[in-house]
């Protein structure tokens, strides 16, 4: 059969579709019925909608392949029970370890910093270099000796008996020495980022395990 009638507007089709389902309020229903009685296009559309509805309602039902009842082992809690406390304990231990490592690392770095600051001569010491050695504590000397700049290190390394120079450095040489650059803040930031990343990874792994289990 050819569909020779003019097509309904989308609004009219929607109204007729709801009419076929009996989902229109009474006054709209009466209006549609009046239209159906006089308009062949509406009649044709109504027949199409009825046929579609009937066809879909009678499609062959699929055969269910099995029962979907749940077994006790399928429904045991995934994220509760004994596994979570252990998971959290592991996470907490890892966090404490990382923090302790950071604190120790940072502490060592902080200890070195004031010592170096204390060892550095005050600005006036440039004008009166002779006063500087008397004000320096022996520990500062030792620390400074350990952190000698490259020139001194190369000189020491050139000797077969490479040893740190013993005894006070001449004040002129010490004042002319460039202050070593501070690599620590950058390194510390990197460590902190690595630690945060590690913690996030641990958290994600635990969450994933909880979901999957």
């Amino acid at each position: 059969m050819k569909h020779a009638h003019r097509p309904l507007s989308p609004a009219a089709w929607e109204q007729l579709s709801a009419y076929v389902d009996g989902a229109l309020p009474p006054e709209e229903q009466r209006a549609v019925e009046a239209r159906l009685a006089s308009d062949p296009a509406w009649q044709a559309a109504w027949a199409e909608l009825r046929a579609l509805k009937t066809g879909l309602a009678h499609l062959p039902p699929p055969r269910r392949p099995r029962d979907f009842t749940l077994a006790p082992e399928e429904v045991r809690p995934r994220v509760r029970g004994w596994r979570w406390p252990w998971a959290w304990a592991g996470l907490a231990a890892a966090a404490v370890g990382l923090l302790a490592w950071l604190v120790v690392g940072a502490g060592l770095g902080v200890l070195g910093e004031p010592a170096r600051k204390a060892a550095a001569p005050p600005p006036t010491a440039l004008a009166v270099p002779q006063a500087a050695p008397a004000a320096r504590p022996p520990q500062a000397e030792a620390l400074e000796a350990a952190a000698l700049p490259a020139e001194d290190g190369r000189a020491a390394a050139s000797s077969p008996t490479a040893r740190p120079p013993v005894g006070p450095t001449p004040p002129e040489a010490r004042d002319a020495r460039p202050v070593p650059a501070e690599p620590f803040p950058k390194t510390r930031l990197l460590w902190l980022a690595a630690a945060a990343g590690g913690l996030a990874l641990l958290w994600w792994l635990q969450r994933r395990r909880g979901r999957g289990g």
Binding site: H3, E48, A51, G55
Partner: peptide, 8 residues
Amino acid sequence: EPSSPGER
């Protein structure tokens, strides 16, 4: 042609 004439 989805139509079901005579059904109403």
